[in-house]
Design a protein around this nucleic acid. Structure first.
Lengths: 315, 315
DNA sequence: AACCTCCATACCTTCAAGGTATTGTGTTGG
DNA sequence: CCAACACAATACCTTGAAGGTATGGAGGTT
């Protein structure tokens, strides 16, 4: 049995006349007669009683008509859903974020994507950079957000945004009295650094900037993520350089101060990471959303900065 | 798209290898490759990613696999249900019964049929003989139960059973003192007759039997059905001849007495009536059940009596 | 009786599914 | 590093079934 048989059967059942049904199907009458006979033979069931006025459904035929219409609609829905899946409009996207990634840009980006593609279920996983790379290679996730991603042969990156660095200080700290601070002013002040773990990371960036400013920072503590770093600042452990998105987090006693006289590379990137061999249309659509989102939000700061450039600036 | 495409797709998706899938489908590899390409092209969706180790489903392909399996099972169920419908094992049977038909044999017959064909929904309609004939011609019912059915060109009958006649009398009536009664004893006693309506009917039978016994009955009242007749006997309106199945109905003050020295035609038939042109397998199965049921239950009384004979004996 | 309207049958044509042989492309093993 | 292997893709041929035209045959109507 074929879907063609069902289409023909439905037409004959509705027209109650083979000739008219054949016209509707744009075929001639004899083949249609044969297809119906064939269908009846294959099922072993008389679907029509032939009357002088045409074809009349038997009770079994009535039942089969309902079933045939049902099959038709199930097939239609299946193809439609599959096509939407093929266009990246339906499905599932597993995304990894890092610890403080829930602050700032990422949630707004995810919201924009979910509004544009409501039928794509996004699943968030919190992972470190190394875990993200591992998970991408094992295909447990499709995309990861992170900073300072080194180029890898099997993984590609797409810049999402670049952010300013800000100084987080305790309100009782001498530097809190400044409107804004410059790099050399940071020398001699104990500094909280993050994250621990795989290099290169934000620590290297800070170390290099300090070095360029002519000093080596005093490390008071190394911690896992920016949120913990700011919490230590609140506790008086020292000062801490953070990306601007961390200001979304307000802790009592902590104030943020901009940096002045900073070199052009004194910005930190936020990128997403994915398999170069991933052809998933959902990923493509997500990356399109990222590009569209990056335009209005980082224009003037980093528009035109390519993945490679972001990396070069990163270390 | 064809059901063949779905079958092939499922095989390839399950084997993750066109060659093995082709072997499983008993075709060679190249046609299968082409069918899959064709399916992808028609849907406009890549369903597989070709790897050196075989075929791997894309996300859209995973979705389509679920859909394809679903379609397959829907089609299987549709054919199976249609086949059962074609064998008369699934569907609906509209049956008409007459007023007192709910007494006696019919409910037992219907129960037997429902046990044998649990998926056939039987719908009962109470109709007079004339209404049954009309409803059969309009196809509103498939089968009617009645007594004393005259042969009609477009309708056929099947004898279900023959029943004895019994005398229903009030317990205070003189005839109630007899163990059994003979026809001549009925003369002079006012008699309740039924049913009113289309002839020939039970009245004609009773009138003829009285005539053969040499008297014309005194009619005290004509009523619509046996139940009303017996109710009038309870009320003292007179005596009433009824088929034996009416004894299922016990009314206070009414007793039933057998008739003795009765002629062989002093039995009343119960038959079912259906269209001669009705090919419905459900009807055939029902008639088979009737025949099987008639055997053990009326053996010795009327086995071997054909439809025509029943009628001949009826009037 | 002639005609009309159906469906069914006979016979031909064509197109696509299936087969065989082969190529191309990655991966693996010596 | 080359040869062998495994896989899908392509080229080309064969065949079977779907579709077309012409016609038959049955039941009903004027």
């Amino acid at each position: 049995m074929d879907l063609r048989h069902l289409r023909y059967f439905i037409a004959v059942a509705e027209e109650e006349n083979i000739g008219r049904a054949a016209a509707r199907l744009h075929i001639s009458q004899p083949p249609l007669t044969r297809q119906i006979q064939q269908l009846e033979e294959e099922l072993g069931v008389r679907l029509f009683t032939r009357t002088p006025r045409g074809m009349e459904l038997t009770q079994a035929g009535e039942l089969f008509l309902e079933e045939a219409r049902n099959i038709r609609s199930v097939v239609e829905q299946a193809t439609e859903r599959t096509q939407r899946a093929g266009q990246g409009k339906l499905g599932r996207l597993d995304i990894a974020i890092f610890g403080s990634g829930i602050l700032g840009i990422i949630p707004r980006l995810l919201l924009a994507f979910r509004n544009a593609y409501p039928e794509v279920k996004t699943v968030l996983h919190t992972m470190t950079k190394a875990e993200q790379i591992e998970a991408l290679r094992q295909r447990r996730i499709t995309l990861g957000f992170n900073r300072m991603l080194a180029p890898l042969p099997d993984l590609a990156t797409e810049l999402v945004a670049t952010e300013q660095l800000l100084l987080a200080v305790n309100e009782s700290h001498p530097l809190a009295r400044e409107e804004s601070v410059s790099f050399p002013m940071l020398a001699e002040h104990p500094m909280v650094l993050f994250p621990t773990g795989a290099r290169p990371n934000f620590i290297d960036k800070v170390m290099r900037l300090c070095e360029e400013a002519g000093f080596v920072p005093q490390v008071s503590q190394e911690v896992g993520d920016a949120v913990t770093g700011v919490a230590l600042v609140a506790g008086g452990f020292g000062i801490c350089l953070v990306p601007e998105s961390v200001t979304a987090l307000t802790l009592p006693g902590v104030v943020f101060r901009p940096l002045h006289d900073t070199p052009p590379n004194c910005r930190i990137d936020l990128s997403c990471l994915y398999r170069t061999d991933d052809q998933s249309p959902i990923l493509s659509e997500f990356l399109e959303t990222v590009r569209a989102f990056r335009g209005p939000h980082v224009a003037g700061h980093s528009s035109g900065i390519r993945t490679e450039t972001a990396w070069d600036a990163g270390i």
